[in-house]
């Protein structure tokens, strides 16, 4: 059976980000496009961070998932523009992040000045309290920051907005 966009996207939905296994590479906005040419499928992806150590694994996982779905030739094309933004993470995916105990990214506000800007409070993914404080600008992975909930005394990761 030749691959269709729908069948390719179904296969890609099973490819999870190794560092955030609750989300697929499609939900994260890493997959930008899919091109089908006969038996060959090209998946266009964009890295979340320039130095994201998970990208190589993600490429291998995409190839393996499509091979398993019957696509013989898989090509991966990496594009850098437009640059990935957390704004591409959809509402359903944000709710999955909260369920996994990760505060979803705020709106990136890419055009606002950055220096010492006071941000909206980050809501605790466990109890919903806005009474939280930043403990470290970098958390368990480069794409997350570590916060602490003063209401339920639970530390949690926040997906950094970029």
């Amino acid at each position: 059976m030749p691959a269709t966009r729908a069948s390719v996207y179904t296969a890609l939905d099973s490819v999870k980000d190794p560092e955030i296994p609750t989300l697929s590479v499609v939900e994260l906005g890493i997959v930008r496009d899919v091109e089908i040419e006969g038996d060959a499928v090209t998946v266009v992806i964009t890295p979340t961070y320039s130095g994201c150590p998970a990208m190589r694994v993600i490429e291998d996982d995409i190839t393996a998932a499509l091979n398993a779905s019957g696509v013989a030739e898989v090509r991966i094309k990496t594009v850098y523009s437009p640059a990935w933004t957390t704004d591409w993470i959809g509402q359903a995916a944000r709710e999955k992040l909260i369920e996994a105990g990760i505060a979803p990214p705020q709106h990136s506000g890419a055009h606002h000045p950055v220096q010492l800007k006071r941000r909206e409070p980050v809501l605790c993914p466990f109890c919903g309290s806005p009474n939280t404080s930043l403990r470290s600008a970098f958390g368990s992975t480069g794409c997350k920051a570590l916060h602490f909930c003063n209401a339920c005394t639970q530390p949690f990761d926040e997906f950094k907005s970029i």
Binding site: Y49, S50, S81, A83, S108, K117, F138
Partner: peptide, 13 residues
Amino acid sequence: AKALKESRYHVRH
């Protein structure tokens, strides 16, 4: 364009 976003975070940190 990609690196700019990362640098902004470095400046803030």
